[in-house]
Design a protein around this nucleic acid. Sequence first.
RNA 1: CGGGGCGUAGCGCAGCUUGGUAGCGCAUCUGCUUUGGGAGCAGAGGGCCGCAGGUUCGAAUCCUGUCGCCCCGACCA
Length: 584
Amino acid sequence: MRWSQFFIPTIKEVPADADVISHKLMYRAGLIRKLVSGFYTYLPMGLRVLSKIENIIRKEMNKKGALEILMPTLQPRELWETSGRWHTMGPEMMRLKNRQDRDFVLGPTHEEVITDLIAREINSYRQLPLNFYQIQTKFRDEIRPRFGVMRSREFIMKDAYSFDKDAEGAKKSYQDMVDAYQQIFQKCGCSALAVEADTGIMGGESSAEFMVPSDTGEEEMVCCEHCDYAANSEKAESHGLFDQTGDEGALEEVHTPNCTSVSDVSAFLKVQPSCLVKTLLYVHDTDKKVLVLVRGDRNIVEMKLIQYLHASDLRLADEKEIEEVFHAPVGFVGPQGIMGVRVIADMSVLGVVSGITGANKKDYHVKGLNLKRDVPSFEQAHLHQVLQGDPCPKCRKPLQIKKGIEVGHVFNLGTKYSKALGATFLDQAGQSQLAIMGCFGIGVSRTMAAIIEVNHDEQGIVWPVSVAPFEILLMPLDSDDKNMLKEAERIYTSLQEQGLQVLWDDRDERAGVKFKDAELIGIPYMIILGKKSMAKGLGELEIRRGHQKQDVPLDQIVERSRDLIGHAYRDLGFLDVPQVQGAL
RNA sequence: CGGGGCGUAGCGCAGCUUGGUAGCGCAUCUGCUUUGGGAGCAGAGGGCCGCAGGUUCGAAUCCUGUCGCCCCGACCA
């Protein structure tokens, strides 16, 4: 491709609304432009990158036997009523009506559609297993789109859905996808970590997220440096810590005027916050009350509580509700002597034999709380937030907390959707069975941003070859020099004949402009032709990453480039240089 | 949903406090010079100052409303 005939609108200045590096660089390098908040146009350079990521995904999916399909973006309300998600999804799902006043949703995901399809098409165990995938535009009306293409309202996603006849098959399908995902992200140049995760709105049994470690990530994960434990912080656990010591004693009221918070009480009584037991009253599924106990210096993760309760909604009780249960005002409540309310104790308070908590009386707390003695019956669960340094649940070594970008998510769905939508088949014994499902997503557009987050420097993007819009940039510096142009033309044709994707900067620009643009757009390899070295029969071959340069005789430069690029592909885990496909 | 900030030329901004009909840098166009790290000189084009009302002889500027964009936060007894 000749630069002058392509469209690469680079800009020097950063638009005021770009905040993170990938967003700034995508804008400046002419990959994307914004339409409105959360909606972006991919310009030719951006689209090439996207297509490359998609092709890497296709190849790995196909290797595992998944079959590509394409489902509608618009889906009828009825399907979502059937699965129950018309009501549980909330306002992030975009809904609209057609002229007959019929409700539709702009698909945020496709479990309903695919399961409906399978329910109609599959009758026998002989047809299973199946794994269908698509690469398609999804819509989620995010509260706050941000970081450019990283969290947008319209985005491109690869979603795959597996259907198995038994648990063993489902397990294999799941593992196949995990393996494929590792391959995909490695080949895209943004190796991802698989971490245990919450199933969220998808429902189902278990799930793992694929995270690219990066400080701009929105997700927090907990990982162990010593073993392979890694989990999303909404799911992470720590080893049963906090065996609280202290002398057992009788319950004793203490006067704590106006001390309504943990910090007030611990300061007033001159004890560590960890000596307190926080008593939280939650309301879930509209009117069910549950009392949660957690150590004073810890917070609970509401997501964990929702999971534990299988609740569809959850909120803290208001002052009135608290008064009704404890007959005491907010800030002075405790679990002792409370009857008729379900009590859940977090692991952090299980060992408490002399804790401090509210006395259920205004301006008073109690000392000497012994959980097992003073609370008639309680359940135990892991609800607290894991902090840096907490012991690993597997090996007890200190845990680390890191930020990451969620680029993929795999779910073991079980039979939630097959049951709701009637995806059954007859087994060998002629019995009707529910298909066991898995669903597997990759945020394609987000992956593009993640790749840039981990592959850039001061000057601009440093694309991994596998996803670079072009593999090599040909840069003759003097556009008036006939000889140089002739040589450039020769190299250009020759590179193309080698099957390489080459961008030829044929613009009549000064060298400085060309160099700056080249660094910005980040093509991984560059051939530079200058007057002086050409006179000696030499050209320069430069590697964008690290700016290593070498002089190479002109008659060898194409071959050397091809070798370098071949090595680069192999380093990323490819067996060979992929063939050019489609528009590329 | 709450809080904060911002809408002035394609992009980045100044001007607004103290009303008088708009300016700077980059980009664009023309010409000459320049040509291995975002060139120099000379000239040119381009803005209903987000939109709608109001105050005023007069509004980018003051007031009200509205739309859009960005950032932060999201309850812990």
